[in-house]
């Protein structure tokens, strides 16, 4: 059996329904929410603020610190054991590297900008949702950024190329699957995150990235609208 139709009746390049809102956490310096299907991400930004221990300080520029966390009952199966684990640490690190190219923290030597990404519920694509929420929250915090960062996962399920895989597609058993999270700067089209789990051919990867870029453009429009909505004159 080939994978001819997506289980949730989406088109091959169709995203799950997206909802984005900025300024959801009052006490944070910047915050945003990004929901894509059943994956929800909240990001809050604190800082620039004092950085200790002192050896972590960089006298040339401020540093960015991202923390990705899945809440205990956010998975679709078992309870997620709370706290840092290998996976969360890795995703925190790649998210940080995906966001850093747009940020300019030269104005804040020796300081830190903390980003906390919390996921109350997830169904695949959580790092992408987290990066989208974090980039909106950083913009909301009034930091100098040359662009936003939009992220989406693309992939191959059996012989089809898809955009924004959900869990049922990621876990498809009757054929080979590749899951490729992409983050990019939508204005310049530069890619800041590219990971892959699974197997694809070179041509399919090229095509998949092309589809991802196009989808990121659509996500960017949603993010832009959410940011403007918070500040627009009522």
């Amino acid at each position: 059996m080939t994978y001819s139709k997506r289980l949730n009746d989406r088109k091959m390049d169709e995203l799950r329904p997206i909802e984005a809102k900025v300024g959801v956490i009052e006490r944070a310096d910047g915050s945003a929410m990004f929901k894509i299907g059943n994956t929800w991400a909240y990001a809050s930004v604190y800082g620039p603020r004092n950085l200790y221990p002192k050896f972590m300080q960089d006298p040339q520029s401020g540093i960015l610190r991202v923390n990705y966390n899945m809440m205990p009952f956010s998975g679709s199966g078992e309870r997620v054991r709370p706290g840092a684990n290998r996976r969360a640490k890795e995703i925190s690190m790649v998210s940080e590297k995906a966001l850093l190219p747009v940020l300019d923290l030269k104005e804040f030597p020796n300081s830190v900008v903390d980003v906390f990404i919390e996921l109350p519920q997830t169904e695949a694509g959580s790092r992408c949702a987290g990066i989208c929420a974090a980039s909106m929250a950083l913009a909301d915090a009034g930091l100098n950024m040359k662009d936003l960062v939009a992220a989406v996962s693309v992939g191959r399920v059996d012989d089809k190329l898809l955009v924004d895989l959900d869990y049922s597609e990621e876990a498809y058993e009757d054929g080979p699957v590749a899951d490729i999270p992409i983050a990019m700067m939508p204005q310049s089209g530069k890619i800041t995150l590219l990971q892959m789990d699974g197997e694809v051919t070179k041509e399919d990867l090229r095509k998949a990235i092309g589809m991802g870029k196009e989808a990121c453009g659509r996500i960017y429009e949603v993010m832009k609208k959410a940011l403007k909505e918070k500040y627009e004159v009522q």
Partner: peptide, 8 residues
């Protein structure tokens, strides 16, 4: 007008 980072 409100502009976001990266907007031309």
């Amino acid at each position: 007008e409100i502009v976001v980072p990266g907007e031309i």
